[in-house]
Design a protein around this nucleic acid. Structure first.
Lengths: 342, 342
DNA sequence: TTGAAAGCGCTAACAT
DNA sequence: ATGTTAGCGCTTTCAA
């Protein structure tokens, strides 16, 4: 069975015995058309299984596509899933469709995806940048009227609207919470280098909290990891120090997984934990997990709203919007430090 | 500042002083071109920030796009994120780009997304169908050579390649595990109607396991829910029965969240649980959660491989591939039933 | 090695 | 209410 050619406007027109333009009119509810014609056209469309070629239309109208392109580093991460959901909510009434692709945090794949979207003339481009990516190539497109929004992390080489969480102050609050509980040696398990920006900000918040309390900053208490496994190792290392931390701040949900696994393995219910980023069953853990929760849906909907304003003609200068994090006290952050060498 | 028009092939050609065709040749490495010409063309491309309009190209070449369209019910669900990751892995070397959109399990949004993809002439369409969706409209496109693959759930009105988990036998194994532990009254908390197919299959597996063991099927032990909140309520209701279950089978990860919350709230560590679908920190719960794990990455990569074979010309008849689930015993399923009315 | 003309499927602009 | 012509940005075909 040889593949059948897909029907075109002309095919439908021929079937009905009218001109292509008439079919076009019916389908787009453009000019007037008699009820009879409309009926017959729609019938033929149905019969032939005609799907208008939107690419041909776009080319002719010159206007942008009705899609919004989103590039995220990792589809598997629920954080970005929730961000995408927020964007869709914001776009819902506008008739725009969100299309997304995953860069796997690789600058080249990110660039390829961006090119794919640009080549398809998306009406908006949203990017959660991969580490090391460069975005100055987007400048002409932005000038051509395509809104560009960075999410979760700022872009590089392009000044445009950006939506990020309050990484710094959120972490600061989380660490302050631990300090208020009497902890003086607090470990930081952050990711690297995969998410340089968020890590940097969160680490800065950690340091600020220590400084606020007049506590020394001991670099030995700052550990790097890039997935749950290495986060586990890092945790083990921290707890094995001569003067170990009595509390830990984990830098994101993957780190949290590793940190908690290691604590469970060691039966260390005495170590307080505050996690950056909420996890679904945090409240079911024992002790329940205290978190600095981000609001990914709000990040997404904020970005969506900004994009719609830009499309509506807003030409004001680029802004960076921060979405508030929220400390949720569930228990793991309230553990008191156990007797330590005084 | 008025938006600047995006540069076209002709603009580049004018800039260099050659014909459009020459630029096209250089960019597509089509015919021959002198090194000098190539250099100057690439320079101009860079200078003008030219991005070829892929829609115009597609229109002329008539061939399909280099993208694969994926429609999933819920971006926020890590299961589908992992499926998407698996697809990307399979596609990685083929030069195809995965674009996805979320239907929110709404047949209309699903249809709109499918239309969006069809109108853009994706080379492959993959769909995890929303409940109540109908897919016979895809038939002509499949005939026109576009592979269509259903994921996680079969489609309706179209016979085509389908990749699903072993929902039935997996659940059967999970329930058998509980029965082997001595449980005779086992509750089932399933979702409805959002995912009719998977629910039906899993419920069937539950019944089969009961029948295998010669246990009666008590409809009072089967509860419906559609999110964690209602799953909690359903759990409370089951446990409040005169002759309550001593073990529960939760039908998917959202149900699991509700079931476990309710058990935690009631301090019911005596109720055994087996969950369909793994959750990230299952091993950190107390008791650690026994699950029937799906392999979403394998679902995705299998679908990707099938699609590539179809694109390569495989015209064999449509197949349904099942991806094995795996019972992971972590503890919650090994709890022995406590003294019950004998 | 390069160019000119035609045409992909569709719609804007102007008929009729 | 409907049709004709031209042209969007690109590539195919055929010449040069």
């Amino acid at each position: 069975m040889t593949p059948t050619r897909r029907p075109t406007l002309a095919d439908v027109a021929r079937e009905v015995g009218v001109s292509a333009k008439t079919v076009s009119r019916v389908l787009n509810e453009d000019g007037p058309s008699s009820a009879e014609t409309r009926r017959r056209v729609l019938e033929a469309v149905d019969k032939l299984g005609f799907q208008p070629n939107l690419m041909a239309r776009s080319i002719r109208t010159g206007g942008p596509d009705t899609t919004v392109g989103l590039v995220i580093p990792d589809v598997g991460n629920p954080f970005f899933g929730a961000v995408a959901g927020g964007i869709e909510d914001a776009l819902h009434t506008s008739g725009l469709t969100l299309l997304m692709g995953s860069s796997d945090d690789d600058p080249e794949r990110e660039q390829a995806l961006i090119d794919t979207f640009l080549a398809r003339r998306v009406s908006v481009l949203m990017v959660a940048p991969a580490v090391g990516a460069e975005h100055s190539r987007l400048r002409p497109h932005r000038s051509a009227g395509m809104p560009v929004v960075f999410l979760d992390r700022p872009g590089t080489g392009l000044t445009t609207d950006t939506v990020v969480s309050t990484n710094r102050s959120g972490t600061r609050e989380g660490v302050a919470h631990l300090i208020a509980g009497g902890h003086r040696r607090i470990g930081f398990v952050g990711d690297t280098p995969a998410r340089l920006y968020t890590r940097r900000e969160r680490l800065a918040g950690y340091r600020e909290a220590l400084a606020d309390a007049g506590l020394p900053h001991d670099r030995a208490l700052v550990a790097d990891a890039h997935d749950p496994g290495t986060a586990s190792e890092a945790t083990a290392r921290l707890l094995g120090l001569a003067d170990p931390p009595t509390a830990l701040l984990s830098g994101n949900n993957n780190m949290t997984l590793g940190v908690l696994s290691q604590l469970a393995r060691g039966g260390r219910k005495d170590v307080a934990v505050v996690a950056f980023d909420d996890v679904p069953i945090a409240s079911l853990l024992e002790p329940a997990l205290t978190v600095v929760a981000q609001d990914p849906a709000a990040v997404g909907s904020t970005a969506g709203a900004i994009a719609l304003r830009r499309l509506a003609g807003d030409r004001s200068r680029a802004r960076t919007v921060t979405v508030e994090t929220r400390l949720i006290r569930r228990g793991s952050g309230e553990l008191r430090p156990v007797a330590s060498a005084e």
